[in-house]
């Protein structure tokens, strides 16, 4: 019995010993196109990329509980708030912003612990059939609470992290009290109880259930691309994107990003991978597959994203690194407003 146990232990230890020339990723951003990108990286550098994809908190739990024995090097996710919150727990180490990363990524989208890889904006979509562009003149996120939009707004649930980051940015700019009132106003304006994902909000506007929807930029491009079938492609053409807060701080931006974990056994390789993800080649691969905005200068987004408009003002005033601190408050004000 003892021999068997020892053999089993040896077997599993053997498999868990990390091979020097590799990098281990825990990813809550699971695009299959990312896997192709990692393969490119391996071809180029000879460094093997191992991936576990899963839900944010579950991966974080594994990292936290495994502690010093965690062999993951990089944690990648699609929300700045989550990166910030995980940093606050002390789970990252400095080093993500290497020289090359600093040169490539604007200051607002990185910290010493993690860096953005791609950008997305959370914007308003409207029905040009029922709403004149002039009605939206000067429209802001704050304006979504205006009673004139009563019964016209759709937005997904309060437990969605993109909403939490958006509301966190409102709290950072307007304070918690004002944002609590704002949340009540938005709930009063909803065309229906919150349900479905971002795409479902855009479809609701196309189908006439609502006039305004809040959703991330890449969802419309995804539909326009035909990857969701001809029907949705046609439906997407019935809505138009609108970039809010252009007269003020600019449109709410969020990132996909990654940070180097505290006990990363392959730190140098992790930095190499982050730097690779910020090269022109990798950025082009990302924007053409996920319809996000590139993180670096000199790369053109996918043409469907270009059509949505590129000249808009991004909110560079509100640091994306502040979202994490305010997300719990954001959910609290939304729940208090009975935002489902």
């Amino acid at each position: 019995m003892r021999k068997i146990l020892l053999t089993i232990c040896a077997f599993f230890t053997f498999f868990s010993i990390s091979n020097a020339n590799e990098v281990n990723i825990f990813s809550a951003r699971h695009y299959d196109s990312d896997i192709q990108l990692y393969e490119k990286f391996t071809k180029k550098t000879g460094i093997k990329v191992n991936v576990v994809s899963g839900k944010d908190k579950a991966l974080q739990k594994r990292i936290t509980e495994e502690g010093k024995d965690c062999i993951a090097d990089l944690y990648i996710t699609a929300d700045a708030g989550r990166l910030g919150a995980f940093q606050a727990k002390g789970m990252f180490q400095r080093g993500a912003s290497s020289k090359a990363v600093k040169a490539a990524v604007p200051k607002n989208f990185r910290t010493a612990y993690w860096t953005g890889i791609a950008k997305r904006a959370r914007i308003i979509y409207y029905s040009p059939e029922r709403i004149n562009a002039s009605d939206l003149q000067g429209m802001t996120y704050e304006g979504l609470a205006d009673p004139k939009w009563k019964g016209k707004v759709v937005i997904r649930k309060s437990n969605n992290v993109y909403n939490q980051s958006l509301v966190a940015s409102l709290i950072a700019n307007n304070g918690k009290k004002a944002t609590a009132e704002w949340a009540k106003g938005v709930v009063a304006n909803m065309a229906r109880d919150s349900k479905g994902n971002d795409r479902a909000q855009i479809l609701a506007v196309a189908a006439g259930e609502a006039d305004l929807a809040v959703a991330n930029t890449y969802y419309l491009a995804l539909m326009l691309s035909g990857k969701k079938g001809a029907e949705q492609q046609a439906a997407a053409k019935k809505v138009k994107p609108f970039f809010p807060n252009q007269d003020g701080r600019g449109t709410h931006m969020n990132i996909s990003g990654g940070g180097i974990l505290k006990y990363a056994p392959n730190k140098a390789n992790a930095i190499k991978l982050l730097e690779f993800l910020l090269t022109k080649e990798a950025q082009e691969h990302i924007v053409n597959n996920t319809f996000e905005y590139p993180m670096i200068e000199g790369v053109e987004p996918h043409k469907l994203v270009v059509q949505m408009g590129l000249g808009f003002k991004q909110d560079l005033k509100t640091k994306v690194s502040s979202y994490g601190k305010k997300q719990a408050d954001a959910l609290e004000v939304m729940l208090a407003a009975k935002w489902k």
Partner: peptide, 8 residues
């Protein structure tokens, strides 16, 4: 014993 039981 963590690597034996977590992520294996």
């Amino acid at each position: 014993i963590k690597p034996i039981f977590i992520g294996s």
